[in-house]
Simulated assay, not measured.
Amino acid sequence: MAGDGEVQFLGSGGSPFARRVQIALKLKGVEYTYIEQDLRNKSELLLKYNPIYKKVPVLVHNGKPLAESLVILEYIDETWINNYPILPQNPYDKAMARFWTKFIDDKCIPAIGKAAWTTKNEEREKGIEEASEALQILDNELKHYHHKFFGGDTIGIVDIAASFIAYWLPLIEEATGFTLLTVDKFPNLHNWTQEFTNHPVVKENLPPSDTLLGFLKARYASLK
Rank of each mutant, 00 (worst) to 15 (best):
D4P: 00
Q8L: 07
F9A: 00
L10I: 01
S15L: 01
F17K: 10
A18G: 12
R19I: 03
L25W: 11
L25E: 08
K26Y: 08
G29H: 11
E36H: 09
Q37S: 03
L39D: 12
L45G: 03
L46K: 10
N50M: 06
P51V: 03
P51D: 10
I52A: 10
Y53K: 07
Y53P: 00
V58L: 06
V58E: 12
V58P: 04
G63H: 00
P65R: 09
E68A: 09
L70N: 15
L73F: 08
L73H: 08
L73E: 11
E78P: 03
T79F: 05
W80S: 02
I81H: 14
N83T: 06
P85S: 13
I86D: 11
L87E: 00
P88N: 10
N90L: 04
P91L: 04
D93Q: 14
F99L: 05
I104T: 11
D106I: 01
K107H: 11
A111C: 03
I112L: 04
K114V: 04
W117D: 11
K120P: 00
N121K: 12
N121S: 13
E123Q: 14
E125N: 15
L135T: 05
L135S: 07
I137H: 05
L138F: 14
L138G: 09
D139H: 04
L142D: 10
K143E: 14
Y145N: 13
D153G: 00
G156M: 08
I157C: 15
V158P: 00
I165S: 13
A166T: 11
A166K: 14
L169H: 10
E173V: 01
E174Q: 15
T176E: 10
G177M: 12
G177F: 11
F178R: 15
V183N: 14
F186A: 02
L189W: 11
L189A: 07
H190N: 13
T197K: 08
N198K: 10
V201E: 08
K203N: 14
K203G: 04
E204L: 03
L206T: 01
L206R: 07
L206F: 09
L212K: 06
F215D: 06
L216S: 02
K217A: 04
S222M: 03
